[in-house]
Design a protein around this nucleic acid. Structure first.
Length: 450
RNA sequence: CGGGCUAUAGCGCAGUCUGGUAGCGCGUCCGUCUGGGGGACGGGAGGUCGUAGGUUCGAAUCCUGCUAGCCCGACCA
């Protein structure tokens, strides 16, 4: 992409409305624009990252055997009356009427609708297990939205629902989700710690939240510092194996890690003092097992092997897709701007032409972009007439993890500069070598963008 | 929803107390010079001062209502 033809309205100064760093940087980097309190337009750069995050979620869901589908944003109140949640949800649910006076609502979550789909079409235990998920916009009419996309009213969320014959099967689904979520976050360059949580309006008694440690987090968290040493890494896990999933779940949840909602001071005191940590965290996902809470009242049953109808055991699982952008930035930035992890970066590298109009610099820059594109990498080619300082400042702000600087000075010696955004380290290389190095860096990190 | 605050050019702000018809920086447009960390000089464009009403010869400025946004709290992914 040529920067001169892209739409990247960066701001030099901090907008007054933004208080926390991720909100400030998203506005300054031209990723979002507020439309109303807690409601944002996604400008091209922000939209690109959003799509990459979505695609990682999709890929990891597919790997775990979960099936994508989509439910509507506006839902009839009828099903919600059936479950009793139309009244329970309160003012947070945005309600409206259509021209016929029918009650509609903007979905804050979708247990009712998916349960209705299930009961309409699934009748036999032979159809189980089943896990359906969607990535869809949600709305929760927060009293006080704040912190940009971290606490918006409209937000993009992956929500999944598992249907199983028995509690044991549903707990396997729970563990399988826990593992797949860990993989998902790790691919985004994030460490998200599963913490025992409170189930809130979803209900149920088995639930974990995934927290990214960050000073600006909305939740106070208490944990044994040893949990931060556990990584899934590159190990292969058989999602069909009850044992394998349970082992990972046990490994990640054995140590003390809780949010303030479930914090138990007595149990926390058992953690060796040197490893006790009190910090803040951003919630980026949550998984629930809630048994027959919805299937029973809504009549979501299957016939078992004995021919008798039994209510299915369910769970639901969510990833805050739009909120993840804020979480990633909170966890990865410096005073100059964002630092994208390779897995989610909107462009794989910035190609900065320091002397646009110079035949050699133009040709070398374009050749680098062509070679990157041929290898499946997306360059952001800064072909504008800005001065070097301004170009670098923009690159630093928008946070592409790698920059190739092309200028007459280097080209005289047949080299360009490859610079890491994270470390600031540069090395001079012939253009082909720089591209080769990028290809190696991104091995295993390629995600479809937009 | 309780408490506090704000609204003046695309962004950040001054001007409001003490009423006299709007200004600064950045950005933007044109030109010249410049060219490896937000460059210099010159010349432009851009605002019915959130909105409705009131006071006044005269309102960005004083008064009232409304709307929107921000902060703290309660709530929440």
């Amino acid at each position: 992409m040529r920067l001169s033809r892209y739409f990247l309205p960066v701001l030099k100064e901090n907008p007054a409305e933004a208080q926390i760093v991720s909100h400030r940087l998203m506005l300054r980097a031209g990723m979002i624009k507020q439309s109303a309190a807690g409601i944002y337009s996604w400008l091209p750069l922000g939209f690109k990252v959003l799509r990459k995050i979505e695609n990682i979620v999709h890929e990891e869901q597919a790997r775990a055997g979960h099936i994508p589908f989509q439910m509507p944003i506006l839902q009839s109140a009828d099903l919600w009356r059936e479950s009793g949640r139309y009244d329970d949800y309160g003012e947070e649910m945005l309600r409206m009427k259509d021209r016929h006076g029918r009650d509609l609502l903007y979905t804050p979550t979708a247990e009712e609708l998916v349960t209705d789909i299930f009961r309409s079409h699934v009748g036999s235990y032979r159809d189980l297990p089943l896990t359906l998920y969607q990535i869809q916009w949600k709305f929760r009419d927060e009293i006080r939205p704040r912190f940009g996309v971290m606490r918006g009213r409209e937000f993009l969320m992956k929500d999944g629902y598992n249907f199983d014959l028995t509690k044991e099967d549903a707990l396997h689904a729970y563990n399988r989700h826990l593992v797949s979520y860990l993989r998902t976050y790790e691919r985004m360059g994030l460490q998200a710690i599963p913490m025992r949580a409170d189930s809130g309006p979803i209900g149920g008694d088995n639930t974990h939240e995934f927290l990214v440690l960050a000073e600006t987090g909305e939740s106070e968290v208490f944990y044994d510092s040893a949990v931060t040493d556990i990584r899934l890494g590159s190990r292969e896990i058989d999602y069909d194996s009850v044992e394998a999933c349970r082992a990972v779940m046990e490994q990640f949840t054995a140590l003390y890690a809780r949010t303030d909602e479930t914090h138990d001071a007595a149990k926390f005191a058992e953690v060796p003092e040197a490893r006790r940590r009190v910090a803040r965290g951003i919630e980026v996902g949550q998984i629930f097992y809630f048994g027959t809470k919805y299937s029973e009242p809504m009549g979501a049953t299957v016939q078992g092997p004995d021919g008798k109808p039994v209510p299915v055991h369910m769970g639901s699982h969510g990833i805050g897709v739009s909120r993840l952008l804020g979480a990633i930035i909170e966890a990865s930035h410096d005073e100059r701007g964002i630092i994208w992890p390779e897995g989610v970066t909107p462009f794989h590298a910035g190609v900065v032409n320091l002397k646009v109009g110079d035949a050699e610099a133009d040709a070398a820059s374009e050749a680098i972009c062509a070679a990157m594109t041929a290898a499946g990498l997306e360059p952001l080619y800064d072909d504008t007439d800005e001065r070097a300082g301004a170009k670098f400042a923009t690159q630093d702000l928008i946070g592409l993890p790698w920059r190739i600087t092309v200028g007459p000075r280097g080209l005289k010696n047949g080299v360009v500069e490859l610079t890491s955004r994270r470390t600031g380290e540069s090395e001079e290389l012939p253009p082909e070598e720089a591209v080769k190095k990028l290809i190696a860096i991104y091995e295993g990190h390629l995600v479809r963008g937009m």
